[in-house]
Design a protein around this nucleic acid. Structure first.
Lengths: 292, 292
DNA sequence: GCCACCTGTTAGCACAGCTTACATCAAGGA
DNA sequence: TCCTTGATGTAAGCTGTGCTAACAGGTGGC
């Protein structure tokens, strides 16, 4: 495409509007500018082409044949562009919001609350992508991630959703059955953990324990870990925010509680390009954050 | 057309170029800007739509599906616009140059020289429109006018082509046959003039004579006037520039010569919109002006 | 004659869109 | 392994396009 021979697009747009309205003032109103702006564009075009495009005709303007020819081309061209833009906006509006999060958070925190979002925004489709690895938001097409950690990751924006202390939990009967209150006397085999639980790995690093290394019992995912603990088979370390309901109902009891120390769940987004649906979802998340 | 929902056309143009080249730098080269400009436009579009349009991919860029959709629409739209502009330029290039002039000037000065222009520019069509009335250049679609007068007309540009004294001419035998050298003894009936000769009217005004009022013999056009004078039937006032050849060949002799006084032929053009052909014609005219 | 609308033109200002300048990263060749 | 080349990313700041403001004049309807 040889852009050098094409007059400024602003001029062409102005002329296209002029052609449709047949009057400088009307065109100016459509484009939210003054008539002087349109007049200048028209003069510039006529000087550039060396053609008269419109004759001044008392009230209003009359396109010449040359003017009509140009206007037709511009009308079609701009219409195609406008259609394409509109289609893309529509696509952006209806596109599912892709949310990456840790499996535990999805199960224990988000799913119980999702009903509220779906009720409020039935037209916004949300695709939850549970996963352990830190995904590259841009590369993997993720709109929003909920990550567990200290809140500082390079190249993304992060805001706290729910800072959370950790708790060591067990079934109410566990310590009684074992006849002990003393954590120090627990063996490695009493601990359950899951390599798939980002939260436990982060807490482990924070308190200086590598569950894998000390030979604790590993489960495939944190859901199994919690099941085992509920069954009175042992204990585990959990983000307090996630086991809140179990503690409240008495299904689990907290043996020890640790400091939040800035660790918790963060809403992580790309600095650029947040889709309309994603914007809604983030706003909804923020409102849920307070009570948690 | 709802322009408010359409991003800046410059951004869209930049993205269209990016889509075709698959690289910021290449697109920048096409548009004669730096890669930073393209990069900024891309970011602005992505932020506006809330969509990722292109993935950064080591060397070069890869459009997303959304990006391809947008690029297709833009490509077609801009192509239509570009075609329309090109067609109009072509039309402007090949359009005949409309030249308005006085009949006398056309016959006596321009026609003898037109061969030179046609030889130099065989592709430029020139339409001569001889006429007496001062035409409205814009309204009547006239590119160039050659007017006789003092050089100052409102709303147009005028540059001198050939300033010209007037001469009172007669056939060589005329005065001899009448046996007199003395202009004062000529009667009104010895004068020929034409109401269609702008030049004579202007000279008349300049010297304070209204040929019509004094009852001189009127002919339909100046060609007939000159014929009558050549035949020895009387005398007339003429722009010197137009009867130069007759004087040189001895067909006519000058009885009296008046001052140019700023009167003469001027190249008159509109301040705006001079078509390419018209530009050529005016330039050619200017070169002919010196020797005349 | 008045009013309400249009167009034409200039001077001057604001900001979109650019450049400059720096950074990082990947691919090739010495 | 280093160096060169050419890609992208981003911030700061300049510049010229495209606008407004403020004038003028013309036209049609009441």
């Amino acid at each position: 495409m040889d852009w050098s021979s094409i007059p400024s697009l602003a001029s062409l747009r102005a002329f296209e509007a002029l052609a449709r309205h047949g009057s400088l003032s009307a065109a100016a109103r459509e484009l939210n500018v003054t008539h002087a702006a349109i007049s200048q564009h028209l003069r510039a075009l006529e000087a550039d082409f060396g053609l008269t495009l419109a004759r001044r005709d008392g009230q209003g303007m009359q396109l010449t044949e040359d003017g009509h020819e140009l206007a037709a081309a511009l009308g079609e061209g701009f219409a195609r562009i406008s259609d394409g833009v509109a289609a893309l906006r529509d696509r952006a509006r209806t596109r599912p919001v892709v949310v990456a999060l840790t499996p535990s958070f999805a199960e224990a925190w988000l799913m119980p609350r999702m009903g509220g979002f779906w009720a409020a925004h039935p037209d916004v489709e949300v695709r939850l992508v549970p996963g352990v690895n830190l995904m590259d938001l841009r590369r993997d097409g993720v709109d929003v991630a909920i990550r567990f950690g200290g809140g500082s990751w390079p190249g993304v924006q992060a805001e706290p959703l729910a800072l959370s202390a950790f708790v060591v939990v067990a079934a109410p009967g566990f310590t009684k059955a074992r006849g002990m209150q003393d954590l120090a006397r627990l063996s490695a085999l009493d601990w359950f953990f899951s390599g798939a639980s980002v939260e436990q790995r982060v807490w482990g690093q924070a308190v200086g324990v590598d569950f894998d290394a000390i030979g604790a019992r590993e489960m495939a995912n944190n859901g199994l870990v919690v099941s085992a603990v509920r069954a009175g088979l042992g204990l585990s370390i959990q983000a307090k925010a996630l086991v809140e309901p179990d503690l409240a109902s008495g299904q689990l009891i907290a043996l020890h509680e640790g400091d939040a120390a800035g660790l918790g769940y963060y809403i992580v987004t790309r600095p650029d390009a947040l889709s309309p649906g994603a914007r809604l979802f983030v706003r909804w998340l923020r409102r849920r954050a307070k009570p948690a």
